[in-house]
Amino acid sequence: MADNEKDLKVVFERPHALLPVVTNFCPGCPHGIVERLVAETMDELDIEGETIGVAPVGCSVISYDFFGCDMIEAAHGRAPAVATAVKRVHPDGVVFAYQGDGDLASIGMAETVHAATRGENITVIFINNAIYGMTGGQMAPTSLPNQVTQTSPYGRDVATAGNPIRVSELLNALDGPAYIERVCVDTPKNVRKAKKAIKKAFQNQLDGVGYSFIEVVSTCPTNWGMTPQDAFAWMRENMLPYYPLGVVRDVTADGFANAAEAAAARNAACPIAHPELKTEGGN
């Protein structure tokens, strides 16, 4: 018996940065997968002790009870503002915001855009499942055209409700972000890809590369009214054509040390942005 025990090897365990509690997520909800990936990242980079996470309002609102690092619960949409301030107070700490689509892209869009354009050296994890989950399935800023929700009972009418927002592409219009990638977690392969992206988004922060944003295209089996498998199938069929996976921006892959260098290159023709250049006008 004792010899057998010696032969046993731990091959899978709960990450240290994920507390041993039961989550409030519905069966089949990808939140659990993504939060685990964030926790694994904290373990692997050995940063749990200096990490401060900011939870949103939405299904992941109680994440402050799930993550082992210090946590702050923000008002609806304000996580980027809260994270900004925490990072300013503790520039050597690691700060991340974990937000859903209603929180990040609707009520908190101003905070999202401005934290990104300031190039705050933080990590933002964005769960896009095209619906307000916690309040019971209302139309989100990322709900697809004709998608039926509680508040778009005849399907999202783009003539009156507008088109969904592609947040990653929108943020890519700014000079602040260093890294933007869209991933999903429907297959083991994609989970591994998502993990790689999330880890890079944290590593960027440690390396001072700058604002890193990971959009996870996700599902809501409960409010979509589907089994988890059907939900992933619907996601692949409808969401991925609208929200294509892949790297949207990576300044390091473009050969820059950080977002600031990339921004400087983008505005190279603007004299006031480059005091080192002699200008003809003024002095």
Binding site: R78, A81, V82, A85, V86, H90, A110, E111, H114
Partner: peptide
């Protein structure tokens, strides 16, 4: 800040951070 709303939530964050 981008707004008064963001400013007070930054106050919230900085205060939480000590």
């Amino acid at each position: 800040a981008e707004s008064e709303v963001a400013a007070i939530n930054m106050v919230y964050g900085a205060s939480a951070a000590g």
